[in-house]
Amino acid sequence: MAQPKPGRAGEIATQSARIPARETILLGTFGEAENPGALLRLANGSVARLSVGDPLEGGRITAISSDGVLVQKAGYTRRITQPRLRSTGARTGG
Rank of each mutant, 00 (worst) to 15 (best):
A17N: 07
T24Q: 06
G75A: 14
R91S: 01
P83L: 06
K73C: 03
P36E: 04
A63S: 12
P55I: 06
G7W: 09
N44P: 06
S66F: 07
I19C: 04
E23I: 08
M1C: 12
M1N: 11
Q15Y: 12
R60I: 14
E11H: 10
P20E: 07
L70G: 01
E23W: 08
P4A: 04
A63R: 09
V69N: 05
L39V: 13
N44R: 14
A33G: 04
N35K: 14
E34W: 12
P36L: 04
G93C: 10
R78C: 08
I12G: 08
A74W: 04
G28F: 05
A13N: 11
R8A: 11
S65V: 03
R22K: 15
L50W: 00
G31Q: 09
G28M: 03
G28A: 03
G53V: 05
L26F: 03
L70E: 06
I12C: 12
T81H: 08
G10R: 05
L26D: 02
V47T: 04
P6K: 15
L70N: 03
L70Y: 01
G53R: 07
D54F: 07
T14C: 11
R22V: 00
G10K: 08
E34T: 13
E23G: 09
G58E: 10
P83W: 01
I80Q: 00
G94F: 09
G94R: 14
R8S: 08
A90G: 02
A48L: 10
I61F: 02
A2M: 13
G68Y: 00
E32A: 09
I64L: 06
G37E: 08
G28C: 01
R78H: 12
G59N: 06
G68R: 02
A90F: 11
I64M: 02
G94K: 11
R49V: 11
Q3R: 13
N44H: 13
N44M: 11
E34Y: 14
K5N: 11
Y76C: 10
I61H: 01
G37I: 03
L26P: 02
G53P: 00
S16M: 14
Q3C: 11
S66L: 13
I12W: 12
S65I: 07
G37V: 02
R79A: 08
A74G: 05
V47D: 00
R22Q: 13
I61P: 06
P4D: 04
L40M: 09
Q3M: 14
L56I: 07
T14D: 13
L39W: 09
R86C: 07
P36D: 00
L42H: 02
P20K: 10
T88S: 15
E57F: 03
Q72K: 10
T62G: 03
A33M: 00
Q82E: 15
R79F: 02
Q82A: 15
V47L: 07
A63Q: 09
T24V: 01
T29P: 02
A17H: 10
L70P: 01
A43M: 11
G28T: 00
I19V: 11
R91F: 02
G68L: 04
I25P: 02
S87A: 13
P55S: 02
L56G: 04
S46G: 10
L42K: 05
L42Y: 06
R91C: 03
G93A: 10
V69T: 01
T29F: 05
Q3N: 11
D54S: 10
